[in-house]
Each structure stands twice: as C-alpha cells, then as structure tokens.
C-alpha cells in the first residue's frame, strides 16, 4: 500500500530508498517491513506516537543500528550502512535532539570538532573560522554576531542552527533532524523552520522527526506515518490534514471513507 502511494512522486530515483526494513530487539519487533523514500530537495516528516519506532528507524538510517533484513538504496545503488562513519561517508548527517555540542567551546570549534584543519601540526584557526563563517552565511544564520562566542551563550534556536550548520558543512546530502523544535519557543521555532526550508532550497534531502503537527504541516513536503513499527502511509503533505495524520498515528489507518482532503 505504501509503495503504491509513493510512486507518483518518484519522477526520478529518490536519494534514499529503504525496502522491507526489519529490526527486532530480542522478541520485540521494532520495525516491520518498512518502505520509505526520501527524495532530494524535499522535507520529509516522520511522525508517529511514542514507541512507534521513529527513533529506531532513524538510527537504522544513520548507521547506529544495523537492520536485520531489508535493502537500502542510496542514489539508486544498494548500500550497506553499518556505522555512523559509513553514513557520513555517504553524506548522511544526523542532528540529535541533544545536539552534542560542547558548551565550553566556541561555534567554530564545535563545527570543526573531530575534523580540525591543521598546518604543521598546529590548528589552522583562521582557515576554520573563515569556512565556518561561509557556511553560516550560506544558511543565513545571521543572529549569531560573533562566531567566537562559546556555545553556552547561545539561545536554543541558535544552538540548533549551529548543530545543523555543523551537519551540512561536510557536503552532506541528507540531514536527519530529531525533534528539532522540541525545546524551543515561538520565535526560535520559526528560525529553525526557516533554516530547514533553506536546506531544502539548496537541494538537500531533509528528514524531520517531530511530534508537533503544527511544525510538520508548516515545513514538510512529504509526511510518513509510522505506527507500531509499520510505516502505514507516506505521501505529499497536501494529501493529509491534521485529523487524518492523528488518526494514522493512533490507529494505523483511516476509518472515514475517502480519506482526508484528497
């Protein structure tokens, strides 16, 4: 059912395609025959109730978990993502909910953490600062006036922006964001949603995991709903309305005839 609905979108091959993905932990079947397409230049929202399997699916895509069965296609070619390193080599970067920033380091230091540039064994601070500045300017993260301020002094939205900038700095093609707006106020949320749109406009594929349907409808081009480990529906966002998404999330299907606005 899911694959059939998704086909109309696929004028060309989606960036990331998973088919029949299974993952179980002992007797618990966390993911069951999941088919998911993530096309470039679009924001795909993955929604589902607590425990539905959003995080497990994300971690399978990011290489943290290795799926039991199923096939992953990257730009049409079958690939095996067995570690986070494999994923980032392909161009998949994940921004986790806790952001993983070191508060005591400044923005540049955080963006280059683990991938510092050096000349003669010493850090190339000037080069890194210039590159970080360019990336932030490219994402129009303009509220940060000095990129040499420690991350501890940033607001929640700014921290999210830095984490995203860190992820897109390395020629990534797919950015997975786990609850990017969960801890943010209204203005900060708007800032992050704008940032997500900007990533999409640059041709990146973005996958957003969210509980907040307001945000989902505001930013998503496509919506995929996961229910008890099964991907029950994925389609263009315009096909859904709030009530149908909630119904998919809570019951795994639609009781009303004719679906939503479609």
């Amino acid at each position: 059912m899911t694959a059939a609905v998704a086909e109309p979108l696929a004028t060309d091959e989606p960036l990331l395609k998973v088919r029949e993905l299974d993952k179980h932990f002992g007797p618990v079947q966390a993911l069951y025959h999941v088919d998911l397409d993530i096309p470039s230049g679009q924001v795909t929202a993955l929604v589902g109730d607590n425990g539905a399997g959003k995080t497990v699916l994300t971690k399978c895509l990011a290489g943290i978990y290795v799926p039991d069965h199923g096939q992953t296609y990257w730009e049409g070619h079958p690939v095996h993502v067995r570690s986070a390193r494999d994923a980032s080599r392909l161009g998949i970067e994940t921004v986790y909910q806790d952001l993983a920033l070191a508060d005591n380091l400044d923005i540049v230091q955080n963006m280059f953490l683990g991938r510092e540039r050096t000349t003669n064994g010493l850090l190339d601070e000037d080069g890194m600062e210039r590159a970080a500045k360019e990336t932030l300017a490219g994402l129009r993260v303009t509220t940060v006036r000095s990129i040499r301020q420690p991350v501890a002094s940033l607001s929640g939205g700014q921290r999210q922006s830095v984490a995203v900038a860190k992820a897109v700095m390395w020629n990534s093609k797919l950015v997975i964001m786990d609850e990017p707006t969960a801890a943010l106020g209204v203005v900060q949320t708007k800032m992050v949603l704008d940032l997500i749109r900007r990533l999409r406009d640059r041709g990146l594929a973005v996958m957003v995991i969210s509980h907040n349907l307001n945000d989902v409808f505001e930013v998503a081009d496509r919506i995929a709903v996961i229910y008890l480990g099964r991907l029950v529906v994925q389609d263009k966002a315009s096909v859904f309305d709030r009530q149908s998404v909630v119904e998919y999330m809570t019951t795994g299907g639609l009781s009303r005839t004719g679906g939503a606005r479609a």
């Binding site: 920033l101 070191a102 508060d103 005591n104 955080n110 953490l113």
Partner: peptide
C-alpha cells in the same frame, strides 16, 4: 599553553571536559 590551545590534542581535552558525549560522537 601551545599544546592546549593550538593543537588538536588540546582541543580534544577541552571538548571532553565540556561534553564527553559530543567528543565521542565527533569520533575522538
């Protein structure tokens, strides 16, 4: 001072002190 502020090693020492989890995910 040079070791701690101008080299990768020093940067990682501060990163671990600030957020070990971030350092681990950065591949340190």
């Amino acid at each position: 001072t040079i070791l701690l502020t101008r080299t990768k090693y020093g940067r990682y020492v501060y990163a671990i002190g600030g957020n070990p989890e971030a350092a681990r995910r950065a591949g340190i």
